[in-house]
Design a protein around this nucleic acid. Structure first.
Lengths: 245, 245
DNA sequence: CGAATATGTCAACACCATTGACACGAGAAG
DNA sequence: CTTCTCGTGTCAATGGTGTTGACATATTCG
């Protein structure tokens, strides 16, 4: 690190403007980084370009984040913040969980390049903690036993993040790669030898890459069905195997 | 590119040994890259280090791959090759699909760093095509209508790759990050204010990050259940909504 | 007002991917 | 066997990257 200490945002007192007159903040840096990645692709996220976009010396970023990885986690946490923004419990646990899942998915998909970079990371930051609190709260109110909370929460979060990353990957492809992807299905598959690839050859005219619809809502409902079934067993026998997907 | 033309592997005639006496090949480069990533982490995969590990000048890699992205796709395709290695249809479509899914998942998880880098990419290479052929073949033999093949195949592949990437992410974390992850659940959650995070505070002693078991087998079975249900509807009414997750 | 120091800046380091020019030797042609 | 071709490995150079230590200065506190 250029400097060992990164002052946490709430304790910052002195705000000294940049040579170009910009007053930096964690929030401003995060927002600028998200904009940068959205406009120019994930490859454009470098400390130097970020400095340029901010109107500050690149190394100033290190006064706010310990390194690029720290910044990345902050971007992920901002996605979570936006997902939770305005959410409130409806009182129906299944509705709540579905809503939380869809919000998380949507927040990441609105910035696919960020999702691709950060969706698989545990941020350990405030908004992630808020999300955990919300999910645990819904599960407890629904009547799930405390001993199952960690596992159910883990499965739920995994499902959402896995699909967020997956669907983001399709959206975030640079135009050239997306074109190459489509070309593979449209051009090369129909030309494959019927000897070596009989099934593709026989149905090539019907095979087009299906990218329009996300499988997430369907998968989420399957998961929630499993939770409902588990909860209704709750009163009867003690603990059987826990649904984890 | 250093040189516009990359000669495809099967057409290579001249194999000229390196100064250090190594005879290069696409396969050798891919295997060395996988080993490098497995031993030193994803960050160690640079053309320079790869050259060093190979015993060749770094720029020699560009005689075999157009760039780092091309190499990455080759790594992904190698994972698919290993997954398919030795697979044969059992004649039972559900068994076949489950087996293919589990193999793909296992192949990626055996090299989590590679999975993290490449699982979300469409490679367009030979082994991926073989996998598509196998899956389409199983679905056709099962009796799914040709018009549904693209969508069902897409959902199946998505599910497997999404969980491969997710589970790989947990395995691929550098030890420091993994420790930080565990610390968050063990140390900071129990200290949260009961006012702001009542649900976490009340159950903190039971909350530990659940990383031991993958949710994939469960999710895969849910998906296959949905396919079974869809197939049994096949004979009756025409087409309803298609399960996509 | 004066001092302390947080924060922005600068220059430097080691690394990275990629490229064009070049040399050499393997394989084809005779 | 000899000769020629050109595929392939090497070298040097370019412009990028994250990160750091030293430094300057203006903001806040006493």
């Amino acid at each position: 690190m250029a400097q060992r200490v990164v002052v946490p945002e709430p304790e910052r007192r002195r705000r000294r403007p940049t040579k170009q007159g910009v007053v930096l903040s964690e929030q401003l840096i995060v927002e600028t980084a998200i904009r940068l990645v959205g406009q120019q692709g994930a490859a454009a996220l470098s400390v130097r370009r970020l400095g340029l976009a901010l109107g500050a010396d690149p190394s100033a970023v290190y006064r706010y984040f310990r390194g690029t990885d720290d910044l990345l986690l902050a971007l992920a946490d901002e996605m979570v913040r936006r997902a939770l923004d305005g959410w409130a419990s409806s009182g129906q646990w299944r509705t709540d969980l579905r809503d939380l899942g869809m919000r998380m998915h949507a927040a990441y998909l609105s910035h696919p390049q960020v999702a691709l970079l950060a969706a698989h990371r545990t941020t350990g930051r405030v908004h992630e903690t808020r999300a955990v609190e919300a999910i645990i709260g819904v599960l407890r109110a629904a009547g799930f036993p405390d001993t199952d909370l960690a596992r159910i929460h883990g499965s739920f979060a995994d499902l959402g993040l896995a699909f967020a990353a997956l669907d983001a990957a399709a959206l975030a492809l640079p135009p050239a790669a997306a074109e190459a992807d489509r070309t593979a299905w449209r051009d090369t598959y129909p030309r494959l030898d019927a000897q070596t690839h009989p099934n593709i050859a026989a149905t090539a005219h019907l095979l087009t890459r299906e990218t329009s619809r996300s499988a997430f809502p369907f998968a989420l409902d399957l998961f929630l069905d499993a939770l409902v079934a588990r909860l209704s067993l709750q009163q009867g026998p003690p603990t059987t195997s826990v649904p984890t997907g």
